[in-house]
């Protein structure tokens, strides 16, 4: 089922406006083993329920943001810009 997403900058748009960046996963350690890197690169929780995930406003402001969406109903619970260093989604 198609759904709407609210870009934190531009407002509510159709899902086709956006690129999907996948579920948010924890960054590996600074010097990961091959196995840890494989886990980070490929393995996914793929939850049936609320998932925190990356989106990209491809046809709009081109900003990356975060959504919480129920993958069973496709209901979008919230969208927000990523928080700063130290947050789970931080790349620092």
């Amino acid at each position: 089922m198609s759904f709407l997403l609210t870009c934190p900058n531009c407002g509510t748009r159709e899902v086709t406006d956006f690129g999907f960046g996948g579920e948010i996963s924890a960054r590996p350690t600074a010097r990961p083993s091959l196995r840890e890197l494989g886990e980070y690169n490929y393995f996914r929780r793929n939850v049936a329920g609320v998932q925190r995930e990356w989106w990209f406003h491809r046809s709009g402001c081109r900003a990356w943001f975060i959504a919480e969406r129920d993958t069973v109903t496709n209901e979008v619970l919230l969208t927000e810009l990523p928080r700063g260093p130290g947050s789970p989604e931080s790349v620092a």
Binding site: M1, T16, G22, Q51, E53, T71, V72, N74
Partner: peptide, 13 residues
């Protein structure tokens, strides 16, 4: 569809 979901319902797109 590029996004993940468990909801088996189609899209107009």
């Amino acid at each position: 569809e590029p996004w993940t979901t468990y909801r088996m319902q189609g899209t107009l797109n």
